Simulated assay, not measured.
Amino acid sequence: MANLKNVTKKTKAQAMGMHSEVLTGRTQQKFFNPDEAENFYYFGTYDVDFNKRTDLDVKNMTAAEANKELDNLMSQGYGTIVIKNPQGKHSLGVGILNKLNLIFEGSLGYFGMGSSDGPIVRINGRVGWSCAENLMAGKVVIEKNAGSCFGAAIRGGDLICKGSVGARTGIDMKGGTIIIGGDAGAFTGFMMQRGRIIILGDVGINLGDSMYDGTIFVGGEIGSYGSDAVDSELTQSDQDWLRRKLRVAEIGENFDVSKMKKIVAGKKLWNYDNLEPAEKKGAI
Rank of each mutant, 00 (worst) to 15 (best):
N206Y: 13
N206V: 04
L207D: 05
L207F: 06
L207I: 14
L207W: 07
G208Q: 02
G208A: 07
G208R: 00
G208T: 03
G208L: 02
D209E: 15
D209F: 02
D209K: 13
S210H: 08
S210Y: 15
S210I: 03
M211S: 07
M211G: 10
Y212W: 10
D213W: 03
D213S: 13
D213Q: 05
G214L: 12
T215L: 00
T215A: 09
T215K: 14
I216M: 10
I216D: 10
I216P: 03
I216G: 14
I216Y: 14
F217C: 01
F217P: 04
F217Q: 07
V218S: 15
V218K: 10
V218D: 12
V218P: 06
G219I: 01
G219T: 03
G219E: 09
G220H: 09
G220Y: 05
E221M: 05
E221H: 12
I222V: 14
S224C: 02
S224D: 06
S224F: 01
Y225K: 09
Y225L: 15
Y225G: 00
G226A: 13
G226F: 10
G226Y: 14
G226P: 06
S227W: 01
S227C: 12
D228N: 12
D228K: 01
D228R: 06
A229P: 07
A229N: 08
A229S: 15
A229K: 05
V230W: 04
V230P: 02
V230E: 12
V230S: 01
D231H: 09
S232L: 03
S232W: 03
T235H: 06
T235V: 08
T235F: 03
T235D: 13
T235S: 15
Q236G: 12
Q236P: 00
S237N: 12
S237G: 05
